[in-house]
Design a protein around this nucleic acid. Structure first.
Lengths: 140, 140
DNA sequence: GGATAACATAGTATTTTAGTAGGAATTGAC
DNA sequence: GTCAATTCCTACTAAAATACTATGTTATCC
């Protein structure tokens, strides 16, 4: 149980987009210079974020990325779900059948895992890019 | 962000101890037979749990393990912290210096990560073996 | 046409995960 | 005192995930 580097990087990169505003795009190169991030890696994360409809891209010179939704409508949960493929797994997920010693789903524990998943989903949904920006400014 | 297999296994095994009561120990073999768990792996997890003072052991024949504290005083957070070494890490942890592209700790984001860590700590502390047993019985 | 970007795929070194294997040390029962 | 049951300990391992880098191709603006 931990926040992945992918999620951390994505939050930092998207915060840069959020601070910039939705009008004009910024390039990955610019973002990575400002936030000290590995450009090729961020490119990959951004393609995932695009697939999920969180950001959009402008091709070619003076192109780049911008947010598809206002800051308040992009949550940490959205970011995690887009970037970190292990997110959404609780222990004992029916769809994850690689586990050899599962208790058999549904079992007595299933309800608990589902409740935990729901709690985490709610919590991470409540943290959005606008509240993240507020915290950064308070801390600056 | 996900519940590790280690945590899931440990919860299932400890629930068996909790259901049994603190009077007499149960062996890993018994627990693993009842819960369908890999004995050698559970042995390792139990040694970690013992180091953290969550369970105690009785050597030799008719030996085994039992809980060191009442069910209500053993939380999911305790279990995770004992068994899953990546627990307690937030992104941008000062003690984890392997990260190449860290934002530099403390940075504008630090407060947010700490708040998330505190929330998760509180939440997982509120889930204890007695509430877990209750849910299993409701579901049975 | 050239510079600037996103897009795409593949490779890679390191670490983590989810176990197994084999044996040593300790205790209870007979 | 021996034997069986059990914890304890270390090491090994196959597969996956992690955190990247490398090498292009394609689209757009000037």
């Amino acid at each position: 149980m931990h926040i992945s580097t992918k999620t951390g990087y994505a939050v930092r990169a998207l915060a840069e987009l959020a601070a910039h505003g939705q009008d004009s795009p910024i390039s990955v190169a610019q973002i990575c210079e400002r936030q000290t991030l590995p450009p090729k890696y961020i490119e990959q994360l951004f393609r995932k974020l695009k697939k999920k409809g969180i950001i959009s891209s402008v091709h070619g010179a003076h192109g780049g990325y911008k947010l598809e939704r206002p800051n308040k409508d992009i949550s940490l949960k959205d970011i995690m779900a887009a970037v970190d493929e292990n997110f959404n797994y609780t222990y004992c997920d029916t769809e994850k059948e690689t586990l050899e010693y599962c208790c058999g789903d549904p079992c007595g524990f299933s309800i608990m895992w589902v409740e935990i998943k729901e709690h985490l989903d709610n919590y991470f949904s409540s943290i959005t890019l606008d509240t993240i920006l507020e915290k950064i400014e308070e801390n600056a």
